[in-house]
C-alpha cells in the first residue's frame, strides 16, 4: 500500500534533533545510570550466592510462609546449579534499578493524578499508549539516545513498567471511602497530613499491588532488553533462540520463571500483611 502520510519521517526528524541537541544531557544520564546499575550489580554478584539465597528465603519465610520459602530455596538453588547465577543477578540488578526508578517517578505521578482531575486527564492517555505500545518499540529510542547496553535497557524497562505504579496509586487513593477522607478533613488536616497520615497508609494495599505489577513487567522487559545487549538472562534466552538451542532456551526460560515467581510471591506478601488491620 502506498503511504499517504509519512508520520515516521517526522518522528525520526524530531528524534534526530533531540539527539543532537541533548547529547551532553543524555550522556550524563547514561553515565550516572550506569553507575547506579553497576554498583547494585556489584553488590549482588560479589555477595556469595548462598547468602543471597538465604536472604530471599528468610524474606519469603517471614512474609509469605513456608511453602514460598521452600520454593525459593529450591528454585534459586536450581538456577545456581544450572549455571545461570551470574546472569540472574545481573537481571535482578536491572529489575531493582528499573523498579525503583519507576516507583520514584510513578507513585508521585499517581498521587498527582488522584488529586487533580486535570492531571488525570493528561496522564491517562499517555499511560494507555505506554501500555499498549509493543514492548520492542521502546528499545528503538532507548538505543538511539543511549546506544546499546544496560542503561538503555533500564530506560525502556522503566517506561514499560511504570504505568501500573501510576494507575494503582491513583486508584488506591481515589477509591478510599469518602467519609474517611471527610472525617480527616473535619478534624482539620492539612493537605500533607491528609496524604501521609490517611490516604497513603490506607491506599498502601492497592499501591503494593501496583509495585508487584511493576516488578513483574520490569522482569518481562528486562528479558526483552537482552536484545540490546543489556545482559543477564535475556541474552541467554536470545542466544537460545538465535542458535535454535532448545536446551539453553529451556534452561534460561526456566530461570526467568523461577525468578518471576519468587519476586511475585514475596512482593505480593508485602501487599497483604497478615495482621488484622486490612481484614476488611
Amino acid at each position: 500500500m502506498e503511504k499517504i502520510i509519512d508520520l515516521g519521517q517526522y518522528v525520526a526528524m524530531f528524534v534526530n534533533w533531540l539527539m543532537d541537541f541533548g547529547r551532553p544531557f543524555f550522556d550524563f544520564l547514561k553515565n550516572s545510570g550506569n553507575g547506579f546499575i553497576d554498583s547494585i550489580e556489584w553488590v549482588l554478584t560479589a555477595t556469595p550466592f548462598y547468602v543471597v539465597i538465604l536472604i530471599f528465603t528468610l524474606l519469603a519465610y517471614f512474609k509469605a510462609g513456608k511453602g514460598v520459602a521452600l520454593f525459593t530455596v529450591l528454585g534459586l538453588g536450581l538456577i545456581y546449579m544450572m549455571g545461570f547465577w551470574n546472569d540472574t543477578m545481573v537481571t535482578l540488578a536491572l529489575i531493582l534499578v528499573s523498579t525503583i526508578t519507576a516507583l520514584v517517578l510513578g507513585v508521585p505521578l499517581g498521587i498527582w493524578a488522584a488529586k487533580s482531575p486535570k492531571a488525570d486527564k493528561a496522564i491517562h492517555p499517555i499511560l494507555d499508549v505506554m501500555q499498549t505500545m509493543p514492548a520492542f518499540v521502546y528499545l528503538i529510542p532507548a538505543v538511539l539516545f543511549f546506544s546499546v547496553g544496560k542503561f538503555p535497557g533500564a530506560v525502556a524497562t522503566v517506561i514499560f513498567a511504570m504505568p501500573p505504579a501510576v494507575r494503582l496509586t491513583t486508584l488506591g487513593i481515589k477509591e478510599l471511602p469518602k467519609d474517611v477522607i471527610e472525617a480527616a478533613l473535619s478534624c482539620g488536616v492539612t493537605g500533607t497530613q491528609l496524604l501521609f497520615k490517611v490516604e497513603l497508609p490506607l491506599a498502601m494495599r492497592t499501591i503494593s499491588t501496583g509495585i508487584n505489577q511493576t516488578i513483574m513487567m520490569a522482569l518481562s522487559m528486562v528479558v526483552i532488553a537482552g536484545m540490546i545487549a543489556a545482559g543477564g538472562l535475556g541474552e541467554q534466552v536470545l542466544a537460545g533462540i538465535n542458535n535454535l538451542d532448545i536446551g539453553l532456551g529451556f534452561e534460561s526460560g526456566l530461570a526467568v520463571v523461577i525468578l518471576a515467581i519468587v519476586l511475585d510471591r514475596i512482593t505480593q506478601a508485602f501487599g497483604n500483611p497478615k495482621d488484622k488491620i486490612n481484614n476488611k
Binding site: P177, D179, V180, E182, A183, A184, S186, C187, V198, P201, L202, I277, N278, K280
Partner: peptide, 12 residues
C-alpha cells in the same frame, strides 16, 4: 467536630 453516618474511622 463532626460525627459521620458510616463512622469514618481510620481502619489502619
Amino acid at each position: 467536630s463532626m460525627v459521620f453516618q458510616n463512622f469514618g474511622l481510620f481502619p489502619h
